[in-house]
Every structure is written in C-alpha cells, then in structure tokens.
Design a protein around this nucleic acid. Structure first.
Lengths: 195, 195
DNA sequence: GCGCTATTAGACCGATCTGTCTAATCTTGA
DNA sequence: TCAAGATTAGACAGATCGGTCTAATAGCGC
C-alpha cells in the first residue's frame, strides 16, 4: 500500500521511458511549454506512474538533465579515447562531435542553456543541475588543453568553452550550424597563440 | 466606437509603460512564466489597454524585444562615438559596456538568447525579432574589427561574436561576471593573430 | 495460489492562462 | 460643448496547468 518513491536515479524501464519522452518534448518545445499531460500521453503512461517516480515536474526536469549530462559525457569520453594521444587530433575530434550534433535535424540549441533561460534563478534545482553539467564540460576542456603542454591551460580552456557556448547559441538563433567552424578556427588560434 | 489599434511601433505613454514593465518582468522571470495579468497589475493598467496596443502577448513580446534592441544599439553607438578613433580603444570600450551590464544587480543573462530558448522555432515572430537584433550586433562588431585594418574582418567579427554570446550565457549560468575578461582577452588575441 | 507493489484510467481540485466583452468613465480636440 | 476615442474595472469564457485521489488491475516473487 505505501507506494513509496524508489531511490532517485535508480534506472527502471518506465522511469527511463518517461525521461526519454520528456527530454524529446522539452527539447523540442521548451520546459514550461510542455505540460505533464502531454508527456504522459506521448509516453502512454498514467499520471500516477510519473508521480511514483518523481516528486514533481521540476524533479523530472532535473532527472532529464542529469541523464542527458551522463549520456553526453560518456559519448565525449568515448570519442576522446578513440582519438588517440595527439592533442590536436583530440581537440578536432571534440569539435567534430559538435559538428554532428549541430547538423542533426533534431538540433534545437543546447538543452542546458535553454533550461537556464527558463529557470534563471541560480538557486533553482534545474539551474543547479545545469551548473554541474557545465562544470564537467569545462573540466574536460581543461584536460584537453593541458595536453598541448600550455603553462596555464585554465584560461585557454575557459576561452574555448565560451566559443562553444556561443556557437551553440548562435547556431540555434540563426538556424545555421556553420558558426561552429568559426569556433573551431578560433580555438586553434588561441591554443597556438598561448604556446 | 471602433477602438482600432494604433499603428505598431508608435510611441505613446501607456504603450511605453507597458513595454517597460513587461520587459522588467519577462527578463526577471521568463517570457512564458510571466502572465499578462501580472504585467497589468504591476503596470496598474487595464487589460483592454494592453489589447488596444497589442494584438496578443506574443505581439507584446516582439515589441519588448524591438524596443530593447533599439535601446541597446543607441547605447553602443553612443559609447563607440565617444571612444574616439583608436580601434583598440573602441573594442575595449565595447567590452567595458558589457562589463557594466554583467555586474549590474539586475543582470539575468541575455534577454534575446533567453527569448530564443523559449521560442525555439525559427519561424516564430519572437525568434525572428531576436535574429534581427543579433544581426545588427554582428554588423557593429564587423565595423569595429575592420578598424584594425584586417584583410578579412568578417571571420574575426564572427569569432568575437561567439565569445560574447558565450560570455553572456556563461555569466548567467554560473552567476559570475568574470568570464567576460576571458572573452576580452581572447578577442584581443584573435585580432592580434589575424594581422 | 497468495500477496505485495507497480501501474492503470480517469475523475477531480484549485489555480492560472490568454483573450473577449460590457458598460461606465476619462480625456481631448474641433 | 460635445462627440470620438482611450481607458477603466471586472466579469466571463474555455482551456490548460500541476498535482491528488480512488479503485481496479497487472505483474511478479514467494
């Protein structure tokens, strides 16, 4: 009878399906624009199933972002590990992944940046989930940059992070994935200039 | 009796007050998160006054963005004209303006980027208004960069535009205005590298 | 087979949403 | 002075929102 909520983050088929469906709709239309009824209709699940796995819509959004973050990080690490040891090749592989993302027909900007736009307060759990993800992003970039043997990799990693954030936003705004090439060129120039 | 809508864009006191109030609330909480009833209560205006001046909430949002775009452009042009002819000083003045913006207590990211996040479809009138604004932004940057006598100013202007977009997003995400310094340093490095 | 839990469909709640309508009032220029 | 347009307050509509609740059912370990 208790119908207690299972421990958060534990993967179950229904929960995963809910998260996947929610992400697709949130990413296409926006977090506030999509109601839970729409998600449930699309996922063909009952309302109580959602509230069995998640405390609230906001809680679902956080879970969506965390799952997405894990997925993205795993993909990036896989790509980097098969890119070999050359720092230049690794950086280019990193950019090549974004190129594929930008050119996919589902591309609709960065789901994390859009979440911050809709939950602007820094203390919001949604905003905090984005911060956690973007911090990992920067850590990866710092590791990438330090491969070049630069004395202080952090500032350069920060700069490249800005270029990528800008490219994500700009590609979405203009509906044009080609801006990523500018980000890549600038990143290579910055690495070269700091050696 | 007809109560026809006045020509769009024509400035009247009530209309201006409505736009100013709407911008403040939209920028603080988000476009979908703020209802028209909230705006009207804050502006102390009646509902029919809003629908006398604007066809819909979306129409109001477009007007808000257009007014903001005009305001920002005027401010930038004023700052550039008092910065004198030195291209380096002009670029630094341009960045200094962002620094003031980032550090203001009202700073909550870029209202245009946040509008695109909430109206992701490129054909949406809101999205289109953002595109118009960002195109002017890039034109200003191109003019700024061409002052350095670079052979092809466009790519460099594009790269700096990405850095600024990234800084806007990143400062909001992390609640930390200091990222702008990284953008400025990278911009200077890119200009230097392309000469 | 039994019993526990997850899941189901859907009614229901109170709040909120955008937008329309009315009817009275204020403002202002001819 | 008077008529036309602008503005008012607020009721109202119809839809949707997130979330709760019930009662029946489905699935599964023992």
């Amino acid at each position: 009878m208790p119908d207690l909520r299972p421990p958060p983050g534990e993967s179950t088929p229904k929960r995963d399906h809910l998260i996947a469906t929610a992400f697709r709709l949130f990413y296409r239309d926006g977090y506030r624009a999509v109601g839970i009824d729409t998600i449930l209709a699309e996922a063909k699940l009952a309302k109580m199933t959602l509230y069995h796995h998640f405390a609230s819509k906001e809680d679902l959004i956080v879970a969506v972002l965390e799952q997405r973050s894990a997925l993205v990080n795993a993909k990036v690490q896989a790509i980097l590990s098969e890119a070999g040891p050359s720092p230049r090749k690794r950086l280019l592989a990193y950019f090549a992944r974004y190129e594929a993302f930008f050119s996919s027909k589902e591309f609709n900007g960065c789901p994390f940046i859009r979440a911050v736009a809709e939950y602007p307060e820094v203390h919001s759990p949604v905003h905090q989930a984005v911060i956690r993800h973007k911090q990992k992003d920067i850590a990866t970039l710092r590791e990438l940059v330090s491969g070049f043997g630069i004395a202080e990799p952090s500032p350069v990693a920060q700069q490249i992070a800005l270029l990528i954030e800008g490219a994500l936003v700009s590609a979405h705004t203009f509906g044009n994935p080609s801006v990523l090439a500018h980000a890549r060129d600038a990143a290579l120039a910055l690495v070269k200039a700091s050696r």
